[in-house]
């Protein structure tokens, strides 16, 4: 029973990272109907920037803040420079561009920072928390990870719902021609959507790297699991992305704990295949497709 509790809490903490990646994918999918395969690469790159700042200034939080800002900037710049020209073309063009971008970012990181594994500091202690003498199976840093992602998701949700920019973002995503006729600067909204996705991806990168080390491909497997979480939740649903991340994190934690950690990647991919076969629109988005 103690093991069950430990595995659940650990799964929630890891699941929040998948949720963050899923959330960034959902943001871009909603804004531009593009699956951004470079999302992991972007997160890897901004995490290197964070490491640089942390080593320079000695302050974890300076690196954390710079990573988020860099993610925001990188997302916006990428949309403007390389995605915008493909926007009026078939969707496959943009998808291939994002794959190219991933290769480019990983290559560039290798050239600048080298291919060796670097350790990345955690914000808080990674020693397990205890209640009395009972181990909880999670650390203070795990709690921080969960709280940070949850806070980001709630802020985004509230921003989408209650602010003018959020309303314009949604209008631009749902119906660009109508939004344009109403005076919404649709192009700017797409840039903003990518920028926000870059920010959330950067958050995921900084949060996951203490447990994975940092190297040019370090985000690849996290990206696949984040993508799986987004598919579980439905690519159109930010709340679904968070739920999908949690479900996947907890499920994989049980698989690792009870069946053996070797099986975790296998089950992750199996989950992706099963969801795509059974319910490709995701568990949380309305089953009907949008009618225009």
């Amino acid at each position: 029973m103690a093991q069950f509790g430990e595995l659940t809490l650990g799964g929630i903490s890891v699941g929040m990272i998948y949720a963050a990646i899923a959330l960034s994918l959902v943001l871009i999918w909603r804004a531009t109907r593009i699956l951004n395969y470079a999302q992991g690469g972007m997160a890897m790159f901004t995490t290197y920037v964070a490491l640089l700042v942390i080593n320079h200034t000695g302050s974890y939080w300076a690196g954390f803040a710079v990573a988020l800002a860099a993610g925001l900037l990188l997302g916006g710049v990428i949309e403007r420079l390389v995605i915008r020209p493909a926007e009026s073309k078939p969707p496959l063009n943009a998808i291939i561009i994002t794959i190219g971008l991933l290769v480019f970012l990983e290559g560039l990181a290798g050239i600048i920072y080298g291919g060796q594994f670097r350790s990345f500091p955690a914000a808080f202690s990674i020693n397990g928390l205890h209640i009395g003498s009972a181990a909880l199976g999670i650390s203070a840093n795990d709690v921080f990870v969960a709280v940070a992602v949850l806070a980001a998701a709630l802020l985004l949700g509230a921003g989408f719902r209650y602010t003018s920019a959020g309303l314009q973002l949604r209008a631009a995503a749902f119906s660009p021609p109508v939004a344009r006729l109403l005076g919404v600067r649709v192009g700017r909204m797409l840039t903003l959507g990518w920028a926000l996705a870059g920010l959330i991806g950067a958050l995921a990168g900084v949060l996951v790297s203490p447990s994975t080390f940092l190297y040019p491909n370090s985000m690849d497997s996290i990206f696949v699991l984040g993508f799986t979480a987004a598919v579980i939740g439905g690519l159109d649903s930010p709340a679904g992305a968070v739920a999908g991340g949690l479900i996947l994190g907890v499920a994989l934690s049980y698989v690792g704990g009870y069946l053996g950690s070797d099986l975790v990647p296998l089950f992750g991919l199996a989950a992706l295949a099963v969801v795509l076969m059974v319910r490709p629109s995701g568990l949380f988005s309305p089953a009907a497709t949008r009618q225009v």
């Binding site: 003018s164 309303l167 314009q168 949604r170 209008a171 749902f174 119906s175 021609p177 109508v178 939004a179 006729l181 109403l182 005076g183 919404v184 949008r290 009618q291």
Partner: peptide
Amino acid sequence: VPEGQGVIAELTVQENLRLGAIW
């Protein structure tokens, strides 16, 4: 007001209206 009405179906009535004066 385009043909086929152009309401944004996913948004609420009030959100549609607010968009009209968004700028």
